[in-house]
Design a protein around this nucleic acid. Structure first.
Ligand SMILES: [Zn+2]
Ligand SMILES: [Zn+2]
Ligand SMILES: [Zn+2]
Ligand SMILES: [Zn+2]
Lengths: 158, 158
DNA sequence: AATGTTATGTAATAATGTATCAACAGGTAA
DNA sequence: TTACCTGTTGATACATTATTACATAACATT
């Protein structure tokens, strides 16, 4: 059930995510405008994280003549509403692999090929949560990212 | 044993860290040069994360006429050798609270007052480690950061 | 239609991070 | 000593990432 490293039906993967986004926006009366839809599609094309300026390039190829704030706003919308995440380690963005389910994402980032896989994490249940409780820190959001080598790049490295 | 949120002997906290750094550098034949020492002292002054350009300002106040690469190089040295960490969420750096012990750090970041507390994490033992094993991803380094409200800022918010 | 709200367009700028190369200092080995 | 190697520093320029500010446009409510 891991996207990213394992091969999978990527066309379906994209279609599912888009229709999930449609429905979710409809039911919450969020406006999935042209720019936002386009940015989400761009992110869904690949399981790598794209920088805001990568997004901008793709937007221009798609006929939008956009400046940086346009990309950042669309990304902010997608992140805020759970359709995408920011990968802090890369200052870049990636489509969510589990849209519709509220969750704390965790990422595995291959330092060689830049593929990113998302999984769900439960950081509040682990040592971090214990530390937070012991000092009275109230966790609102967590960033959990692992950097390393994906299965394919491990083979190559041999 | 948590620095950052809890009051503590900060002068001793700084002195301990500096002498630990001295010894460690001596025993490993690492060169704790003037710039590196100064940057570490700057970081140790406060339990907040400082950006590279904040460091540069402090360096200039201390009589160094330094350009960006100087700060980044010194920070890289400190991070590589375990004297400091980068807080990815903030694109900023903080002195290590557990120097001398190799560890995976985790941070609690107050979104209101910017105080950062470091604790140790064991991400490989939790759900992230399980996910990594199940797909064959080899973790080399982890980023674990929690954003929220520190005890003091929770009180204020009432 | 009038109004308030949300989203977009655009220019300029700020903040963060790198590449490059010359100069310099310490150690090592003829 | 001299020559050489290595790591560190100084300095300029450049590249990337992110935000501010303000004007315009689209949408919703009355
Ligand atoms: Zn997700
Ligand atoms: Zn890889
Ligand atoms: Zn540490
Ligand atoms: Zn606080």
């Amino acid at each position: 059930m891991m996207t990213g490293f394992e091969p999978h039906d990527h066309v379906g993967c994209i279609a599912d995510a888009m229709s999930a986004a449609e429905q979710r926006c409809a039911s919450r009366s969020l406006r999935l405008t042209a720019v936002r839809r386009q940015v989400l599609e761009i992110l869904l094309q690949e399981h790598v994280a794209l920088g805001a300026y990568d997004i901008l390039e793709h937007l221009r190829l798609a006929g939008f003549n956009s400046q940086p704030p346009v990309a950042y706003r669309a990304l902010d919308f997608l992140v805020t509403n759970g359709f995408a995440h920011k990968v802090e380690r890369l200052n870049a963005f990636i489509a969510c692999s589990y849209p519709g389910e509220t969750h704390s994402p965790a990422f595995m980032i291959c330092r060689n090929c830049d593929v990113v896989a998302e999984t769900r994490s439960t950081p509040v249940k682990g040592s971090l949560g214990a530390a937070a409780r012991s000092v009275g820190f109230r966790i609102e959001r967590t960033v959990v990212e692992a950097e390393g080598l994906c299965p394919l790049c491990q083979e190559e490295a041999i």
